[in-house]
Design a binder for these strands. Structure first.
Lengths: 154, 154
DNA sequence: GATTTCGTAATATTTGAAGTTACATGAGAC
DNA sequence: GTCTCATGTAACTTCAAATATTACGAAATC
């Protein structure tokens, strides 16, 4: 199974938008993510419906964050993506007649559910504002450090 | 991404083996799982290397559990499968130069790591013996219940 | 009206699990 | 010994879901 990186991607995009005054086009965001503009629009569609961002057409158009960064948690963003499945593993048969498989499913489901709950709760504790603050801390650390740093900010 | 059901599958197979005296062939196990014998051999290969099961060729051959069920946890089985990835989500870029993406990755990685750790710890707490006991409890509950039950034991 | 930018459908590509086929190897049965 | 049963594996196909691309329509600005 290829790993779903939409959450990672959309967060990246949102933080870039937060650094930018005024609308940012899908094309620009796609470049930052190293992907296609259509992919950006697709993953942003859910956020628009949820009211976290707005999109404007035509000249000078693009995407704008439409809510306070402190009011958006990673969990909100995840939900806006349509809460894709978190776990890569699952049961072979969902409602088995076989009692052996029922016992196996019960044990696994319980563990899976707890792990999912923990993950969602963790995501709910982090806001975009915190991510943005972390970014600025990294930026500051880099610019104040010696010239040992190689990689570039973009 | 298709969901990985190897853990579910191999546990199912192990419990069926536990109910059976003497070796069980891949063919029989495959029937119980509704799959192919080669698939069974493939997922069992890791368990054999780990010493949890043994396989015997020729007439009367097949698979046998080779360790006390109380000494095998679901985590052990998971490890024997080669610890496949647990989470369906991941970072878009693993070692990004972009500081924005680094901040995103740091937050997500932390949440992901905790969820994985919890899941592994849960799996480590459950032994095959417990699963087997649960199965027998279900079996007993069914046979003592009224004839409302429809689904079949196999 | 021309250009820019989003909106979205249709299609292709990619990745890894799962399923299948084929054949070699080893262990009993006879 | 050889026949049959069973595992061991490689090679190949199928399948599902994310991702990427192409194409074209709709709205907003110049």
């Amino acid at each position: 199974m290829r790993r779903d990186s939409r959450l990672s991607g959309v967060l990246h995009v949102l933080l870039h938008m937060a650094e930018h005054n005024g609308p940012v086009t899908s094309e620009v965001l796609a470049k930052a993510m190293g992907t296609n503009a259509v992919v950006v629009r697709r993953i942003m569609a859910g956020l628009r419906e949820a009211g976290y961002v707005r999109s404007e057409k035509g000249h000078g158009g693009g995407w704008v964050i439409h809510r306070d960064l402190e009011k958006i948690t990673l969990r909100d963003v995840y939900d806006a993506l349509g809460h894709p499945s978190l776990l890569a593993m699952g049961n072979r048969t969902e409602s088995p007649g076989c009692l052996v498989e029922q016992a196996v499913n019960a044990a696994l489901d319980s563990a899976f559910a707890d792990a999912e709950a923990l993950l969602l709760s963790r995501l709910g504790e982090v806001t975009l504002a915190q991510l943005s603050a972390d970014f600025h801390a990294r930026l500051s650390a880099r610019s104040h450090s010696s010239s040992m740093e190689i990689s570039d900010v973009h």
